[in-house]
Amino acid sequence: METVLVLGATSDIGIAIAKKFASEKYNIQLAARKPELLGPLQSDIQIRYNVECSVYAFDALIFHSHSMFFETLSPKPETTICIFGTMDDEEDAFNNWSLTQRMIDTNYTGAVSILNIAARSYLKNKKGTIIGISSVAGDRGRASKMIYGSSKAAFNAYLAGLRNKCFKDNVHVMTVKPGFVYTRMTENMELPALLTSTPAYLADVVYNGFARKKNVIYIKWFWRYIMLIIKSIPEFQFKKMKL
């Protein structure tokens, strides 16, 4: 049985993805900043799906701990899924450097730090899959998601580069761009039902994309075309819009 590492396992999306892969008979490694929260999810996965499930402490912001973290994983996961990320209020972040830096360091720097390590290990074995959960917000910079969007744009570019770099060595990289998702993060936001997915739906689509070795997937699929339209608006026009 292969093993999947879930980075950011306390988020609603992390939980859903861990359960989905467990239901498909993968052993699961749960990693999060607060591993002490993961006991119930660990027992749930073991009992429901009859797979192995272990828990690790992982902090995206403590970059120098990442190699040691990956070193201690036993067994080495064949698939690494990077889910962690933060989204603060943009206006607060704009006015407070530490918030801006935390968003960039979590969503981009931290992700690059750990995925470089995973990728090196996979390239050496000429086998492995990396999945990055990014966002449609990275497709074009706009005022309402300026910092968050730019961190995800950088992450998208990184994942695309990594895909290109790893392809010839049989290491697959998949970029996942969700639109709106019903999570605790968005519980108090009014979201358009048609454009919004549940974590369970997202996890199904991620698993199917993984099984079919997709490169870039949008969730839901029509976000690809929505973003295509948004990307095609000329900048002189775009800059005047309220987005």
Binding site: D12, P40, L41, S43, D44, I47, R48, R184
Partner: peptide
Amino acid sequence: LKFDKILSF
């Protein structure tokens, strides 16, 4: 509904 984990069996 999100507090739905199995703890032991």
